[in-house]
Structures are given as C-alpha cells and as structure tokens.
Amino acid sequence: MPDHDRDHAPAVETRALRRTFAAPRNRPGAAVEALAGVDVRIERGEIFGLLGPNGAGKTTFIKILTTLLFPTSGEGRVAGHDVVRAAGEVRRRISLISGGESSGYGSLMVRECLWMYSQFYGIPAAIAWPRVDELLAVVGMTEQAHTRINRLSTGQRQRMNFARGFVSDPEVLFMDEPTLGMDVNAARALRGYVARWVRAKAGRTVLLTTHYMAEADELCDRLAIIDRGRVLACDSPAALRRQVQGGQHVELEVSVREGDGTGLPSLDGITAAWGAPHPERGTRTLKFRLPPECPLVDVLRQLEAQGVRVQGVATREASLEDVFIAVVGRGLEDTEVVK
C-alpha cells in the first residue's frame, strides 16, 4: 500500500481473523478457538468498544492487533500496516493499556517511570517531560509525581498505567478493561479524558474492551458484541438498543425454592437471565424482555406454577444489557440464562 493510501486507511481492519490455541499438554484434544473469523473495520477518530463475556476473545483480539500474538489465519491491519509483516510500523503508532497490570520499576518515581516509557518510543526530553506532567495532572497524581512506584496503592498504580498509554501520543490506543480496579470517580474522570483526547487531534482512535455497560454506553461511538470468538452484533449503542425496543423490559424480584435439583424455572418462548441469589433477602432478580403479544400476567402465572413467588415487579427502558442478553443469550454479570 503506498503511503498516501495508508493515511486514509482505517485505524483498524481485520479480515477473517482467526486464532486457535493448542490444547494444553495434559488435556490433549481440547484446542480452543479464541477467535473464529472476525471482520471489523474501525475508522479513524472512533472510540470503538468490544463487549463480551469472559473468554469471548477480546484480549486475544487486542493482542493480535498490538503485535503480541500471531493470528492463526486471516489478516489484521492497524493504520494500514499489517500486524504480522509490518509489526515495527504498527508499534510506532500504538499503545496498550491493560487494566490490572503492575509494570514499572519499584525504585523509580512515578514521574521518572512515565518518562522512561516515553523513551521506549524515542520521545525527545523537551516533549516528554511536559507531557508526563500534563498526564499526571489528568490522572490526578501530580502530588504523587515524586512518590516511588512501590509505595503506590493499587488504584494509583492503575492510574499511572493509564497515563502511560498516552505518553507516546499513539494514533491507535488499545485499552483492555482500562478502569479495572479503579473507584467510580476515577473511572468516570478517565473516561472523560479518553473522550476529550480522541477529539483533540484528528485521526486518534481508541479500541477498548470493558465489562461495564455504562462505560461502553457512555464512551463508545460503536460497539461490537462478541462471544466465543464471533462478532454477534456491531453498531452504535443507540442503534443496538433500538434492536431490542418494542416490548417491555421487566425485572422481577422472586424467591425460588432451590436445591431440590430441578434447576431454575424457565419461561416459554422468552430468554430470561437470572441474577445471583441475593444473600440477605434470599431472592433473585429475573430479567427479560416481554414480547408485545405476551401479557405479563401469563408470565407471572407460569412462574407461580413452577413454585416461584414474585415479590416485586419493575419495568424500564431498553439498556445495553438487554441487547447483550438478547444477542449473547446470557447476561454479562453473574447471571445464568434459562431459555
């Protein structure tokens, strides 16, 4: 691809991207298909989210695009450069923030550590130091600038890592559960920064994975819902929500007789997600979308017939979680789905 075409190439493009992991030696035969043919195109300037349950393949996807893992087959391009054949060119343009990582050298101060990372991208000192200080302010760590890494709390360490992702001024920023382990306020502030950062300079792009629906909803221009290595839906959060509009979204609080081996009750023709048992009240929540042709009383009767006592009913607007339940067939959090 000639250079001028690359400038207009999408930020990320994958074609039939597949990745399998060989079976572990002690369990032969059980090869895992982490990605089963993924086609995604992310334009420059987008904040693109990957939403999926544990083991869906999100991290694998990010690792391939950040040149940490070879695809088994298929193709991936970042800013027009092939992630396998032109890994060096890709690396100059990207960075990766992984929530939960604990990198850095304990004897360095926060400020020095961020500067060090900028050196791995060859940033001249005159640019690096002011940028480091600016980022420290962004993550609210100006006061800790001269604190040693090994004296930071987990959350502070997370915030430093977050800042690290920006020191090289990447074109495409990959974030794998970036707000993992942060308190609500810190997470919200950093989401705000990501949104501003992308808009501040043309061509900046973000690809992030998250388990927080609110994060996906608030931040992403487009979302791909992925499960078992496949993209099941891909659109803007609003458009995705429209898919499940019509009908009511119902949340019941119910008490169930459990432990008699019959499993959780099911509903005819409705995909419902059971929440985990409420420890104090001994109840569970049951979430489902009520089809327009089906009155709520019928559902309540069905439940009653199966020995379920309904203690509370609430209906609400369609949320991303409803989309997720509809598309993936189960909830994202600690839920079990019964069809």
């Binding site: 100059r92 360095l108 900028s118 050196q119 060859g122 940033i123 040693r148």
Partner: peptide, 29 residues
C-alpha cells in the same frame, strides 16, 4: 516523514531509559 523519531534516536533513547532505572536505583536501594 511522519514526525516520529528515526531508528537511531529511538534506540539510543530506549537504551538510556532502561539504563536510568539502574543508575538511579543503585543509589536508592
């Protein structure tokens, strides 16, 4: 051409960045 540093500058700075950890660390521990 894209304004990012050339290979030599990049690698020299990376070397210095990694070296710095030990130069400073040796005084601190």
């Amino acid at each position: 051409a894209d304004g990012r540093p050339g290979d030599l500058a990049l690698n020299l700075r990376a070397t210095w960045g990694r070296m710095y950890v030990r130069v400073v660390g040796s005084a601190r521990e």
